[in-house]
C-alpha cells in the first residue's frame, strides 16, 4: 500500500514526479481497479470473493470512491451483524456466531459460511465499528469534532469515540486479542489496525506527504492499541474518564517526545556548526 498523495498535480517538481511514479506503478500493477467501476457495484459479478481481501490499489486520492470497510457478502453480513448482539454475553466465540445464525433464520451449520469462524467475527466487529465511525463523521453527526480545529485535537476525539464503542465488549476483548495474535491472524489484524489509524487521520484532515505519514499512523495505532489494552484490564462499566485521561497522557507523551527530538536535532545542528566554526578558526580548510 503506497502513500496517500493529496497534493494537486504539478504543485512542485518533487511532488509531481512522486505522483507520476505512483500513478505509473499503479497503472501497471492494478490496471483492472483503475478502469472498472468501484468495488461495491462489482460485488454481484464476483461470486467467489474471499472476504476480506487486501486491495492492491497503490494510488489513493480523495477523488477515488472509498472502498467499503469490509467485503463480506450479504448472507455473511446478516449472520455477522446478528452475532454482534451476542458478543457481550458470549464473547467472540462460535456460540455467538451460532446464535447469530439462528437469529438471522439460518441453521447452526450455516456458520460454515464464515471460513475463519471466530476470527471473522472479530474482523467484522473491527470493520463495522470503523464504518460506523466513518459514517458518523461524514454524515456530520459528530458535533464536538467541528468545534475543534487542529488535526491533533480531532485525532484525539476520534480515538476516544472509537474507544467508546468498545465499552460494551471490553470484558471480552482479551479473548479477541488472543485470537488476533495467533501467527496466521497477525497480518490481517495489523492491516485492520492500519486501516483504522489511517481512517482516523484522514477524517481528522491529516495531509502529511512525507515520513510524517508513517509516524502519524504509527503514533495513532500505538495510542489506540494501548488504550484498548488498558480498557480490557478495567472492571466492566468502569468510568470512561480514566481512559480519556490515559489517551490525554499518551498524546502529551507524544508531544513531549516530538519536542525532545526537535530539541536534539537543534542541539546537534548547533554543536556541529560550532565545531565547524572552531575548525575554521584553527585554519582547517572546511
Amino acid at each position: 500500500m503506497g502513500a496517500v498523495i493529496l497534493a494537486r498535480p504539478g504543485r512542485s517538481g518533487v511532488l509531481s514526479s512522486l505522483q507520476k511514479a505512483a500513478t505509473a506503478s499503479s497503472r501497471t500493477q492494478c490496471r483492472q481497479n483503475h478502469f472498472h467501476p468501484p468495488v461495491q457495484y462489482r460485488k454481484q459479478e464476483l461470486p467467489f470473493r474471499a472476504a476480506p481481501t487486501r486491495s492492491c490499489r497503490l494510488y489513493h486520492s480523495q477523488f477515488h470512491p472509498r472502498a467499503p470497510t469490509h467485503e463480506y457478502t450479504n448472507s455473511q453480513t446478516t449472520i455477522l451483524s446478528a452475532a454482534l448482539e451476542h458478543i457481550p454475553s458470549h464473547g467472540f466465540t462460535l456460540e455467538a456466531l451460532t446464535l447469530g445464525a439462528r437469529d438471522a433464520g439460518f441453521l447452526d451449520v450455516s456458520v460454515q459460511l464464515l471460513p475463519r469462524g471466530e476470527f471473522d467475527l472479530i474482523l467484522f466487529w473491527l470493520a463495522s465499528r470503523r464504518g460506523l465511525l466513518r459514517a458518523k463523521v461524514e454524515e456530520n453527526q459528530f458535533e464536538s469534532l467541528r468545534s475543534v480545529s487542529s488535526v491533533e485535537a480531532k485525532t484525539k476525539l476520534l480515538i476516544l469515540e472509537r474507544l467508546k464503542m468498545n465499552q460494551d465488549i471490553a470484558h471480552k476483548w482479551q479473548d479477541a486479542l488472543a485470537l488476533m495474535s495467533l501467527p496466521s491472524n497477525i497480518p490481517l489484524s495489523l492491516s485492520e489496525l492500519h486501516a483504522l489509524s489511517s481512517d482516523i487521520l484522514t477524517l481528522a484532515g491529516d495531509s502529511a506527504v512525507d515520513t510524517a505519514w508513517y509516524t502519524n499512523r504509527l503514533g495513532v495505532a500505538a495510542v489506540y492499541a494501548s488504550a484498548e489494552l488498558v480498557m480490557t484490564s478495567q472492571k466492566p462499566h468502569a468510568d470512561f474518564a480514566a481512559i480519556e485521561a490515559f489517551v490525554q497522557r499518551r498524546f502529551e507523551d507524544r508531544t513531549a517526545l516530538a519536542e525532545k527530538i526537535t530539541g536534539f536535532k537543534q542541539y546537534l545542528g548547533f554543536v556541529g556548526s560550532t565545531a565547524i566554526g572552531l575548525g575554521r578558526s584553527w585554519g582547517l580548510k572546511i
Binding site: P47, F48, A50, A51, T73, S75, Q76, Q112, L113, L114, P115, R116
Partner: peptide, 8 residues
C-alpha cells in the same frame, strides 16, 4: 453460495 475461497 460459496463461502470465502470455496475450497481448502
Amino acid at each position: 453460495m460459496i463461502p470465502g475461497r470455496g475450497y481448502e
